[in-house]
């Protein structure tokens, strides 16, 4: 499947990336090549192979339900670009 600039535009919107016209063209080319490469997998006969749900062959990894100390608030908020004494501050959330 050929990657179109429209698809890249849509994906960049979902990823909250603003691409210039040049970048859009570049991304379309580069991502297109990545997809072509991955498309090679389609040549393999997977008729009798069960779909893989997970890459690591582990299952049932659990932790007990026991509270452990959280991080101090000062540490948690230390890297926030904008904050007050208790919360992160973000541009106003509109709508719901």
């Amino acid at each position: 499947m050929a990657l179109t600039p429209e698809i890249v535009k849509q994906v960049s919107l979902l990823a909250r990336l603003q691409l210039s016209a040049d970048e859009l063209e570049l991304m379309t080319q580069q991502l297109g090549r990545v997809l072509e490469y991955i498309d090679k997998l389609a040549e393999v006969d997977t008729e009798n192979v069960a779909p893989l749900a997970h890459a690591v062959e582990l299952s049932n990894v659990f932790a007990d339900d026991q509270v452990a100390p959280s991080l101090p608030r000062e540490e948690v908020l230390a890297n926030a670009p904008k904050r007050d004494d208790a919360c992160y501050r973000v541009p106003a959330v509109l709508g719901d």
């Binding site: 948690v76 007050d84 919360c87 992160y88 501050r89 541009p91 959330v93």
Partner: peptide
Amino acid sequence: GKADSRIDL
């Protein structure tokens, strides 16, 4: 005012 939202995680 309506400038910011505060986030509690």
